[in-house]
């Protein structure tokens, strides 16, 4: 109650000031208010960012820390975050296990082939769908989406039988084809959104300058969507790199990939957490490096897809 007269006095004084001063003052107040609002928004965003980082980063951090724990530390009840005693034995065990190096090579082969197949098929498909806008194109893109709804386990066994019947059993190419069935629909959708964002005028200008339709695609459109291609390539690569079920059903001596080898640390006789986490940590390095290398392209690709031309 006692504060009311105090507030009233400056208000009366203000009325005696020139209009321009009052406006400046109001602008100053607004600016301060806006600044304060921005600061609090920024703080909230930072808090949310930190929370998200912890939410997503903690499991990986825990995996990384577990890979440096001794066997008894890995199964401690209650679990400990930091190792009581740091050891590299798990890495030595994991890398010393037969077939690990071969599985890495197989994973790289499979992921590269699958990524290339996805891009080679998705780029022209997405371009055709977005530029020609035919009814069959719309049906095709919806049908591609439907294939994403089929659980992989439902097609895994028939696919394995088909590959065996054409003599591709236990080869990286068979697994790559299987992985392409997972990544291709998503790649088509992603590339479609990127092509949508490229103005048609660009192609028309290229055509006027003497380019064929394919020439315009190759020389003008693809360089513009290269960020989008990088994003699509990353998704396709990751889909293959981390895939487990098809690899389990379709690989044996020659082409077993690392996810299956990682799963092999869980046996009927126990779970070797240390070695399993060590190999998982090593296996994640190429993906992290790839993401860092293509970071700019990925960000560019994401913003490209967000703005319609």
């Amino acid at each position: 109650m006692s504060t009311a007269p105090v507030q009233a006095v400056p208000a009366l004084k203000d009325t005696k000031q020139p209009a321009s001063a009052r406006t400046r003052r109001r602008r100053g107040v607004n600016r301060e208010g806006l600044e304060a609002g921005r600061r609090s928004t920024r703080t909230i965003l930072w808090v949310l960012l930190a929370a998200s980082l912890i939410l997503y980063g903690f499991p990986f951090l825990y995996l990384l820390l577990t890979s440096f724990k001794t066997p008894i530390d890995t199964i401690a009840v209650p679990p400990t975050i930091l190792p009581k005693e740091w050891t590299l034995d798990n890495y030595a065990n994991a890398l010393g296990r037969g077939g690990v190096l071969a599985s890495f090579i197989n994973s790289i082969q499979t992921a590269v082939i699958s990524t290339l197949l996805s891009l080679v098929l998705a780029v022209p498909a997405a371009y055709g769908i977005t530029r020609y806008k035919t009814a069959s194109g719309r049906v095709f893109i919806m049908a591609a989406l439907v294939t994403r709804m089929v659980p992989p386990v439902a097609i895994g066994i028939p696919l394995a039988s088909m590959m065996a019947s054409v003599g591709l059993s236990d080869t990286p190419i068979a697994l790559s084809i299987a992985h392409t069935t997972i990544s291709l629909p998503l790649s088509i959708w992603l590339m479609s959104s990127f092509f949508e964002s490229v103005p048609k005028d660009l192609e028309e200008a290229a055509t006027v300058d003497g380019c064929s339709r394919l020439g315009a695609l190759w020389r003008v459109v693809i360089p513009v969507v290269s960020g989008g291609i990088a994003v699509t390539a990353i998704f396709a690569f990751l889909a293959s790199w981390n895939e487990f079920l098809f690899a389990l059903l379709m690989t044996a001596v020659r082409s077993q990939t690392t996810p299956v080898v990682i799963a092999n640390f869980q046996t009927q006789f126990g779970l070797d957490w240390g070695s399993m986490t060590a190999l998982a940590a090593i296996y994640s390095i190429p993906v992290i490096l790839l993401t860092l290398l293509l970071q700019r392209k990925i960000v560019a690709g994401m913003t490209l897809g967000a703005v319609k031309g």
Partner: peptide
């Protein structure tokens, strides 16, 4: 990319794990 793909595809005829299944 094309060259790498060709190498990878050629190599993929047999994986890194060993002999025929």
């Amino acid at each position: 990319g094309g060259l790498s793909a060709a190498v990878v595809l050629a190599a993929s005829a047999c994986g890194a794990g060993g002999p025929a299944p």
